[in-house]
Design a protein around this nucleic acid. Structure first.
Lengths: 359, 359
DNA sequence: TCTGATTGCTCAAGCGCTTTAGTCCACTCG
DNA sequence: CGAGTGGACTAAAGCGCTTGAGCAATCAGA
């Protein structure tokens, strides 16, 4: 077989040194903006480098003490739960904006569970693959901050609740408690007294936080018929739970869903049971996405700038990599966008009996 | 400030060599399954390595000629278009399954356009960051295969149409032409004579392929009122185009959408215009996802195993990295799952005039 | 008994970069 | 006029790994 391929050898510093007529070290100094070379040499070296299309080999750099110029992100959710969620890709594209500026790569991995996730961190650390990681889906009892601290891997936790016990990693968080309080406030003002919260995965910090806040707010107002039900975030469970709570004797008049997918599924389920939205039951989605404007009635939703969330998180991580201190920064509280799916609690009685579900 | 951190030095081969009482090379041979060490030594070395929790430094490996143990994936779509699409995360999780087995990392980047994408490839190549890449959203006039060939970067194109002119990269493709033919077949059998295809981004290979096939199939049957309209895949354009074509004098009786998001948006738009689905107009989504079962009527959809798609693609890439030849493999033709949104073309006349839109 | 393989291992170079410790050559100053 | 000084640059070591060359011991065969 004829050698068709001409694999275009990559230029190294040695090539530059030769062409510029200086030593490799001089090239290194020149290119890294260090003193020790005259301005004219520096310029010449720079020009040669550019002309050759030289870029430092990350491997070589890394081997001589620099970082890997890469940060990691691992998502521990089963594949099917992942797909429908608009959150991650938004988050990632925000992260990328910041990383790209600094030519940092993003090593991405999806795994099945948190054990596997911890394994990935260990491997990445041992293999020198990443300089730091972004941790998503923080949990109430979370082994990851300790692990990362032990490994000395800089990390920023995305979406957690600030935790004084773990001063290690930086945290970028949204005020879920504040948002939940605002939601309850608004629903209460609309006359709702029976509220069901179709929550996400139990054990996740923000799930628990929302549940706690809901309970507290309910108690504060003396509401007894308010509760949370955890799910796996899937449309299937969202619909199932919706059917269950609406079938009760005195069904809730307001449903708060922890993501857009469940809200839409719940909306459909409610319609099939003959509940009209928002007349019989109000629906709120804790995640605003195109989805919320693709169904009728349009879903009222808690809106936050997920891309900005990603940017902030990546910003914190790069700050950490630059040797900055771990910090806790907050993104704006999600705002409740009221569309068509929320309204005053009209009936407080039993559910309507007539059915108008389609063929 | 007290030195609280104990950054847990990573063990190197030297450490292993010392403890095992052999030379570094012996360790290398032992750990890489090469001949040159006795079985007892090999075992001893292995045990020490494991005990120390040693993992090879990818940087060092790479520097001495091995690959980077990483493959790249860059997605060139604006962030907002990305978020709603269920396709990518599904694809990625399939890819990951295969890569994880072989301890290959996935370097992921999202960029704005294809120029930027090409820039990323060049940089990755120059920085030795990746051993190969997966290319998505192939286009009819696509500079990427040539670029990657020039760089000598192994690549597999995902979702393209096999192209004899570019024997370079491997290709993993679904038979869009066959699927489109099947869809037209079915719609024709149901009595549909006026079909609108709300396509995706113009210039994408599969978009053009679907458009071409639709036209050919229409001509074959002497149908004149069949066309395709390209969009940006967004729910907004999906809805807008739907409203436009349904407002025409003799509106289509069947709508085929190139993704799930537009199909749902179109479904809602049609309902608002007073069209009932499937009585007045049938709707098909070219992408099956939870979305299709979250709306009523349930959307008929072309279903394919996207995760498997990813697995296949990653499989081809690893084969390529192992020195195998570039190949063209096909995934099963997407199957049309008929749910509630398709039915016989009942009326062929003008659109209904009564309106029943809510709100 | 000596040659020639074979086995099991060590040595040392090299991958591309950074970095420390020089070297060399004006200059300046006492 | 010699010592000291600082600027511009080079030499060389080292990061952790792979690998070809080398070397000692063992063993088969003549």
């Amino acid at each position: 077989m004829p050698a068709k391929r001409s694999p275009a050898r990559r230029p190294t510093m040695k090539d530059i040194a030769q062409r510029a007529g200086v030593s490799e070290s001089a090239v290194s100094f020149a290119l890294n903006g260090r003193p020790g070379v005259s301005e004219v040499t520096r310029d010449r070296v720079r020009r040669v480098a550019e002309q050759l299309g030289w870029r430092p080999s990350t491997a070589a750099r890394q081997l001589s003490g620099e970082g890997a110029a890469t940060v990691g992100l691992v998502v521990a959710r089963p594949a099917d739960t992942l797909g429908v969620d608009s959150f991650f890709l938004q988050l990632i594209s925000g992260i990328q904006e910041v990383l790209a500026e600094r030519h940092l790569g993003l090593l991405f991995q999806v795994v099945e569970d948190m054990d596997a996730e911890c394994g990935v961190y260990r491997r990445w650390w041992a293999e020198h693959r990443v300089d730091g990681v972004m941790v998503v889906d923080p949990r109430t009892e979370d082994p990851r901050p300790d692990l990362l601290d032990e490994l000395g891997l800089p990390a920023v936790v995305i979406g957690g609740v600030p935790d004084a016990r773990h001063p290690g990693p930086s945290t970028v968080w949204a005020d879920d408690a504040g948002a939940m309080a605002a939601v309850v406030d608004r629903l209460y003002a609309l006359g709702h007294r029976r509220i069901a919260h179709i929550a996400g995965l139990p054990g996740l910090a923000h799930t628990e936080c929302r549940i706690r806040t809901l309970r507290a707010e309910a108690e504060r107002r003396g509401l007894s018929e308010v509760r949370s039900v955890t799910t796996d975030y899937s449309d299937a469970e969202g619909a199932a739970v919706t059917r269950r709570v609406l079938a009760e004797d005195s069904p809730p008049t307001a449903l708060v869903y922890d993501n857009d997918v469940m809200a839409v599924a719940g909306l459909t389920a409610a319609a099939e049971l003959g509940f009209s939205v928002p007349a019989d039951v109000s629906v709120i989605s804790w995640e605003d996405s195109a989805l919320c404007r693709m169904v009728r009635p349009w879903l009222s939703a808690l809106s936050r700038d997920t891309t900005e969330f990603g940017r902030k998180a990546a910003g914190e991580l790069t700050a950490l990599l630059d040797g900055g201190p771990a910090r806790t920064v907050q993104v704006p509280v999600p705002r409740l966008i009221e569309r068509e799916s929320t309204g005053a609690a009209l009936r407080s009685g039993p559910p309507p009996q007539e059915s108008e579900s389609p063929g």
